[in-house]
Design a protein around this nucleic acid. Structure first.
Lengths: 186, 186
DNA sequence: TTGCGACGATACGGTTGCGTTCCGTCGACA
DNA sequence: TGTCGACGGAACGCAACCGTATCGTCGCAA
């Protein structure tokens, strides 16, 4: 019976509120205000701020993350970086993701949700990329997928989400080549 | 005339409060409570929560960060990683640093302070390490220090502060070798 | 036409933190 | 011994938000 357009407006408002003030400062009153909706409409759907955010994050998680299959380690790494850079340059995501990651350090429920929505997805992709590279003979057997993820995504995350620097043309290519060199090391 | 022991108690309380609830949720009342001090004592010293934190961060910045000079690129990189890992494994710092970095994305004053206290320091160290490696012939001329910092610190930050995974024995050695391989690439 | 359910709006009491003011205490110094 | 200034503590009015309740409105289906 709940009107879907209202639900969508609330969901959108949560993302905007999350991006502009962060989870800690976010209020249900603020969400309702931004969505042009009564508080009642929000409480009719979710019982708390936490439930609301967990619901949104879980929705993202269920989308799944496609594993690249370009036929080469460099190509796969480059594809992962492309996707990650796209997300981290998005104005909303680049605020929301680090914010929720920090919040996750204090709240196990958020931690679990974020892990399922982002980290597990990425680790899955990394595992596939590594496995295929090993099968191709591009990497030695027993290569650690977690280490691979550190080396591939770490530098990009550092630059875009931590230092918040720019991304010069060709930098992703360079990063991919660097990551491959690092992965091959030893 | 202000009593120094009170000032110290407040400073310590700010760090603890910052670590346990984060900047956004931190309140002056909470700080005073934790320090066992009246609100008056806090307001007598700083005019706002922001001023308080900026003062602490600036104090950290003025300490300076020693640049390693081990005589080899691998040694320097390993030393940088050791120091960074020490900081990021510290229970207080590992909460406070990511928290303030996120806050910096929304507040230019915090951004400037954090940049001066952490990022500029690290970039300075990276610049020295790269310059000396170039002089030694270990890296080609024109190597970008910012890129070097991404490749050295990025993977470690990702693992310790983002994924919040553990740090297996020997991982820093491996990371240093991987970073050197990445830096040498191209 | 009537009834129902979701809607936006408004108000409620309660809690928390803000920044300020005032109090009585206590220690240092003259 | 008296003065002075920082102290902890308590209270202030104000603002925001909590979660709930109660309005009247509106659209739809019987």
């Amino acid at each position: 019976m709940l009107r879907e357009d209202v639900t969508d407006a609330i969901r959108a408002a949560v993302f905007e509120e999350l991006a502009s003030v962060g989870f800690a400062r976010m209020s249900i009153e603020g969400i309702a205000r931004r969505a042009g909706v009564g508080k009642t409409a929000v409480y009719r759907r979710w019982k708390s701020k936490l439930a609301l955010v967990l619901d949104l994050v879980s929705a993202v998680a269920s989308q799944g993350l496609p594993a690249p299959a370009t036929g080469s380690l460099y190509g796969d790494v480059r594809a992962v970086l492309e996707l990650a850079a796209y997300a981290l340059r998005h104005p909303v995501a680049s605020q929301v993701i680090p914010d929720l990651l920090v919040e996750a350090a204090r709240n196990p429920e958020i931690s679990d949700a974020i892990k399922a929505a982002l980290l597990d997805q990425q680790q899955g992709v990394a595992a596939v990329v590594v496995r295929e590279a090993v099968a191709r003979g591009e990497l030695p057997g027993g290569s650690d997928p977690d280490r691979a993820l550190d080396l591939i995504v770490g530098p990009l995350y550092w630059r875009l989400a931590v230092v918040r620097g720019d991304l010069p043309k060709g930098y992703l290519d360079d990063l991919a080549a660097s990551a491959v060199a690092a992965l091959r090391q030893h």
